Computed example of a mutant assay.
Amino acid sequence: MKDLRRVLVIDDEAPIRKLLRVTLEGNSYHVIEAHNAQQGISMAASERPELILLDLGLPDKNGLEVLREVREWSQVPIVVLTVQDSDEDKIAALDGGADDYVTKPFSVPELLVRMRVALRHSVGAPEKTEFKSGPLVVDIPGHVVKVSGQEIKLTATEFNIVKVLMKHKGKVVTHRMLLNEIWGPNSVEHTHYLRVYVGAVRKKIKLDEATPELISTEAGVGYRLLDLD
């Protein structure tokens, strides 16, 4: 028998999850449920769904933040399913990486069509959740950094620096790009922030003399995480 396509439903409303489960399982989908943002992000990584139905009004974190975090490492099709129907909400979701937007209350036939279209446009390659360079391994959804198999404790800001550099490994990441990604557009001139945090990261990932230097400074421009693979 053909394997059922796996759909992750991230919604805090139990009646909606039940409706979607009954509807989708009746149309040959396998349904996985998450009732809040953090559980949804974790399950997106561990369960490897082929499509995500995402509510924006989650109790612990805005759905747009979930969308942004998942898009950092995954191109899984995401259909936003929410009561928020303003043009601004739709634009924010689509700009944030959503494949489509369906408002509640929704028509089941319309939802199924939108899902089929999103699945047709999806890339079939397996998703990558771990990024490596030499002894450095970064698990983005798990927020885990390891050097030579040893987990390194980083602050949230330090992890974000490593994440951005790793996603562009081998390339120079400018001060402006790092500052904008981590602190926002109002901080793009504060390069002293980076010197302090990058220095702290370098110390933490340099376990001993045998560990290679992984972050190089491009004077006056930015930083580069070396591609050692």
Rank of each mutant, 00 (worst) to 15 (best):
V7I: 13
P15G: 09
Y29P: 01
L54K: 07
K18I: 15
H35P: 07
A45P: 01
E13Y: 14
N27G: 03
I52L: 09
D3W: 05
G57H: 04
D3E: 13
R5Y: 12
D55L: 04
I32V: 14
Q39P: 07
K2F: 14
L8G: 00
E50M: 07
E25H: 06
D11K: 01
M43W: 09
S28R: 04
A45F: 11
H30F: 13
K2M: 15
A34E: 10
I41S: 05
R21Q: 14
R48V: 03
E50L: 09
L58P: 02
D3M: 10
M1P: 06
K18S: 12
S42C: 12
K18G: 08
E50S: 07
M1N: 04
A14S: 10
P15W: 12
Q38S: 13
K2D: 14
M1Y: 04
D11T: 10
E13P: 00
A37P: 05
I10R: 04
V31L: 12
D55V: 04
G26R: 12
S46M: 11
M43Y: 14
L24R: 00
A44F: 04
P59E: 00
I32H: 12
V31R: 00
G57N: 03
V9D: 04
I52T: 02
A37T: 01
N27H: 13
P59G: 00
N36L: 08
H30T: 11
L19Q: 05
V31H: 08
M1W: 03
G57L: 05
P15T: 10
V31I: 12
S42D: 15
D12P: 07
A34N: 06
I52R: 01
H35D: 15
A44Q: 05
A14G: 07
R17F: 14
V7N: 02
A34F: 08
N27E: 14
L54P: 03
E47L: 01
L53G: 00
I32Y: 11
L58Y: 05
L51I: 08
Y29D: 09
L8H: 10
L54V: 02
I10Q: 05
T23Y: 10
L24Y: 00
R48Q: 13
V31C: 04
K18Y: 15
D12V: 01
L4N: 00
R17H: 07
Q38I: 11
S28A: 15
M43N: 13
R5C: 03
T23E: 09
I41E: 00
V9G: 00
Q38N: 14
I41H: 01
L51S: 04
V22G: 03
L58S: 01
T23K: 04
